[in-house]
Amino acid sequence: MGQSQSHLDDDACLADKLDALLVRLGFGNLKRGSLQRLTGGASKETWALEAVGSAGAAPLIMRRLSADALPSERTIEPDCEARLIRRAGECGVPTPRVCHILEPWDGLGAGFLSARIEGETLARRILRNPEFAEIRSKLSFQCGAILARIHAIPLATLPQLKAQFALGDLDGLYRSYRSFGGGSPVFEAAFRWLRDRAPGEARVPRLVHGDFRNGNLIVGPEGVRAVLDWELAHLGDPAEDLGWITVNSWRFGMIDEPVGGFGSVEQMLEGYRSEGGEDIDVSRVLYWRTLGSLRWGLMCRSMACPGQAGGRITVEGAMIGRRISETELDLLDILAPGSVR
């Protein structure tokens, strides 16, 4: 992927290739000046664009691997992600329609084109703006219902995905923690706590989205319009998704509303059962919240590590490294709650 994309970052050249592709797909032409890079992760680029043809205008998104993306063990390839999104859409999960999976002869690297869905992804606005006031109290139930549909997708109909359960996950995270030099008594205590309580692999593995949270959900005044960013999808314990969305970092200050800062765990589990999801005990949600806080702490650390960000260290990246202490407090609020100072 590296060499085929290294010379692609010239915007004019990119626009020409996209224009040719849109013509081939029957979408018409790329609207002049519509191509715009959206902020996104370090490994994936997200572009907004608009096609104009006889059928009218079509707002689109292109997601593709960055030229300097490092191979990652946890993320799936973009073509696999695209097929997964299609499958989820067929199973009633709100997703953007995938229009095209990029082919080598498109000259655009590895990625896909999808419909662009209007709506809000920024948690601060979803949690505070008046147009979302009415839906906020229903979002938690809705998230539970959507997760039940994701977890019900028959595995035989999915692209090949790796299985990842708690103990294997913890081994990988511990290796990553050691590679950053270790040295955090709180993380050591959390690893110990999580290993002692790790659920077995005996449960029926399910499709796990892997990053279901504020920021990856497009929300409108009527509710969730689309679930984005499927690159961390894997097979595993469905309680993982239910725990991850309750990690304190995704509450964006609304600490008393565990699910994404907008609702309760009970509402989410009720929504989950309403769509046929299994009866999941809150202790399993809490377990995966704890593992999630630990994971997020290590993700913050890796973003501050130049080796992981293609050799550059940005002001933002450096600062994110200091957010580890936030996750340490979140971990202690679970492992050793108290008001002792």
Binding site: P185, V186, A189, N248, R251, G253, M254, I255, R322, R323, S325, E326, E328, L329, D330, L332, D333, A336, G338, S339, V340, R341
Partner: peptide, 29 residues
């Protein structure tokens, strides 16, 4: 438990004193 909490709260007073869980912990204490 007390040592881990005290060390972490001291760390947050430097790193991110506006973090929700820190604000809540200080209010509780």
């Amino acid at each position: 438990r007390e040592h881990l909490r005290a060390t972490t709260l001291d760390r947050l007073a430097i790193d991110q004193p506006s973090y929700s869980a820190y604000v809540a912990a200080v209010a509780r204490s």
